[in-house]
C-alpha cells in the first residue's frame, strides 16, 4: 500500500482503515522492536508501545486535527521513542522504593503522553526558529561541554559572557514558545 503524504495516511486512520493500519505495522514494527530491544526492552514491550503510539496519534487527529510535517513513519518512530523513554523513566521510579507510584490509569497515561508529545513537537519546532549559532550553543551547553571550550568555540570574552549567551538563546526560545497558540492549549 503506497501513500503520497502523511495527511493521506491520517485521513485513512480517521476512518479506522484496516489496510492502512496493517501497512503501518508492516513498515514500522520491526524498527521499533529493534530500538526497544536495544534499550532494555523486549519485543512485547515494543508491540505495546507501538500500539499506544498509533492509538494516540489517531486520538489527536480525531480530537483537534493533526498535521505532520515529516513523513508519517518518521513521526510515528519519534512518538514510539518518546513513549519508550517515558516507560523507562517509570520503571526507574518503581525501582527507587522511596517513591510510591500512583496508579494513573490508562486514560491519564494516554493524556499525559499526548500532552508530552505535543509539547515536544512544539519545542522542537521553535528550536528550528533559532539561529544556527544559538542552536549549536544550546546543544553544546546541554551536552555538558566545558565552559572553557564553549568560550573558545563561540569566541566569547569569558565564561560569564558564555553564560549570558546561553541565557539569551533560551530567552528567545521561551519567547517563541509563549507566542505560539499551542503552548496555551497545553497549559
Amino acid at each position: 500500500m503506497k501513500f503520497n503524504s502523511s495527511q493521506e495516511i491520517i485521513n485513512l486512520l480517521l476512518v479506522n482503515d484496516r489496510d492502512c493500519i496493517q501497512s503501518i505495522y508492516t513498515r514500522n514494527l520491526d524498527k521499533v522492536i529493534r530500538f526497544v530491544s536495544k534499550n532494555k526492552g523486549t519485543p512485547s514491550d515494543a508491540e505495546e508501545i507501538f500500539q499506544d503510539a498509533l492509538f494516540q496519534i489517531i486520538v489527536r487527529a480525531k480530537v483537534k486535527g493533526l498535521q505532520i510535517n515529516s513523513s508519517f513513519d518518521a513521526y510515528l518512530f519519534t512518538v514510539c521513542k518518546n513513549l519508550w523513554y517515558k516507560e523507562l523513566n517509570n520503571r526507574k521510579k518503581k525501582v527507587r522504593n522511596d517513591i510510591v507510584l500512583e496508579l494513573k490509569g490508562e486514560e491519564n497515561n494516554h493524556i499525559e503522553s499526548i500532552l508530552y508529545q505535543e509539547r515536544w513537537d512544539l519545542f522542537e519546532e521553535m528550536l528550528q526558529k533559532l539561529s544556527d549559532r544559538c542552536r549549536s550553543l544550546l546543544k553544546d551547553y546541554f551536552n555538558k561541554v566545558a565552559y572553557a571550550k564553549i568560550v573558545e568555540k563561540f569566541s566569547f570574552a569569558n565564561e560569564n559572557s558564555a553564560f549570558q549567551g546561553v541565557f539569551k538563546c533560551k530567552k528567545k526560545l521561551a519567547q517563541y514558545i509563549k507566542e505560539d497558540a499551542r503552548y496555551l492549549m497545553l497549559k
Partner: peptide, 22 residues
C-alpha cells in the same frame, strides 16, 4: 528538560483540551 533529554511527569491540566481528550 527538553534540551537535556530529561523526562519528567507533568500534572495534567484541567483544560478544555484535556477534557475533550478524556
Amino acid at each position: 528538560q527538553h534540551l537535556s533529554g530529561e523526562r519528567d511527569d507533568y500534572d495534567i491540566p484541567n483544560s478544555v483540551y484535556t477534557n475533550e481528550l478524556r
